[in-house]
Design a protein around this nucleic acid. Sequence first.
RNA 1: GGCUCCUUCGUCUAGUGGUCCAGGACGUCUGGUUCUCAUCCAGAAAAUCGCGGGUUCGACUCCCGCAGGAGUCACCA
Length: 508
Amino acid sequence: MTTTRFAPSPTGYIHIGNVRSAIYPYLIAKQKNGTFILRIEDTDRARYVDGATNLILETLTWLGLAWNEGIIVGGKHGPYYQSERKEIYHKWAKKLIESGRAYLDTTSSEQINGYRKADNVKKVPYLYRNHRPKEADLSPEEILKLWHEGIPLRFKSEPKNYEWHDEVMGDLKTGPEVLDDIILIKADGLPTYNFAHIIDDYEMNVTHIVRGVEYLSSMPNYLAIYEALEINHPKFVSLPHVLAPQGNKKLSKRDGAKSVIDYKDDGVLPEAMLNYLACLGWNDGTEREIYSKEELLKSFSIDRIQNSSARFDETKLLWQNGQWLRKIFDEQGAGALYDRTISSDSASLKSHDSNPDRDNLVNFWPESAKNYPEEYQKSVLSIIYDRLKVLSDLREMTTYFFEDPEINVDMIIDNRFLKKLSEDELEDLLKQTVEKLSDLENWNEDTLQSALNSLLEETGKKPAELFSLIRIALSYAPFSPALNLTMAVLGKERSLARLNQAITALNN
RNA sequence: GGCUCCUUCGUCUAGUGGUCCAGGACGUCUGGUUCUCAUCCAGAAAAUCGCGGGUUCGACUCCCGCAGGAGUCACCA
């Protein structure tokens, strides 16, 4: 029976750099019909952040990583908050005291700092075990009698070599110099991570510990504890770091690593996020790029996890998102996408009416859209879905077409087709357009199309240049339905007014 | 500094001794298609496989050394 766990501490949000230690254990457990546990490691009361647990729940739920044992859902190995498991840790700690492998740390922090400095000056590595107090030699009975809250309990290490196997990193080994007397139970009576996770994983029958490589250097100390406790250790799966887009640093909150859940508000689909993250540092050896959760469950294997770190690339994430957007739109219709939008923010979109026609996104247009013919609305709908890269753009895009746009000359100047042209030239082209269109007597799609065509001939510009200019001047949108349709819908007066506005804006 | 890990196109990666003068994807550039913009399609540029030795008929692939990068040395996880 495969059992894995995700064991975050509630000290903040889950960011891109550490969410793979939830995704991979989920896949490992679920593909074998095993158990995926969610345990909260809240033994550090100082760093506890209110609401962090909810953020974790929200993130996992959004990604579709359902745990079948843990907080909220319960299970036979609870409680799943470490802060509620104190007695269990103390029971195991006593076992270590009784076997002579744990002792009371009576050293003050000032003393410890002194040792550290002295060792530094002597250029020898600081190890606590070189400075054990005489109380370390007390008999188990005496230690048990003296132990009370306020005194930390330390592991009594024995220097030796360790060799072990990591499912990702392979065979590893270290020398005796890395072993030290680490704290098992802190002065406040709660265990350290180092001790607590070993006990919990054992009691919860965890078969694979999936965690970041930063724990690798602590491995010998953990192995020593397993040994002293006379219990078998799970398999170790160490995940390489995710690097920040720039530099060579591990992605971390300090460097502005974004919360995974923030991407939800940005309009990234959970399918795309899961797909991208799972494939960052893992692949099945084929050239496949798109995986649903079900497909990941089928293809995933631990031995194909990369052992070098990977850089987070938002561009590729957005590409993935575009793929998924289109996939879901094609397979499930606009309503399915809309449901995902409304769950985050529906500021400028009409709120969910009772019994809406889910398959017709037009129902969710802002009020102002009603002033436009249905044909135009539908055209806008298809044009938007063809171009959508990020779901939240939907909100902004509706304003391009249905609200009065805000003038932004930079959009013209920075346009990839227009930046080759001078501002005078742009202004000239717009003036010619206004002149041509002013003469138009019948203002409809057909007459507009022929007017645009002859304008193209007269100016000798490339279609992409002339039409991009007119499009932006008209709608301030980077794309739009066909120009003739747009102008027909806007009407002569409004179209010309917007073009003239753009001319004025260019002048300033 | 000690210890440990890592090192193939800008980025994610394929590659387990010959089929690799290194393949795919993102991004970039060019062209085509669709009503002009997104998509889609085609093509191009892009890695002396970190460096130096060795083993071998033959190495990106095995061994050794070096360099660079990262992680870790808490009563944090």
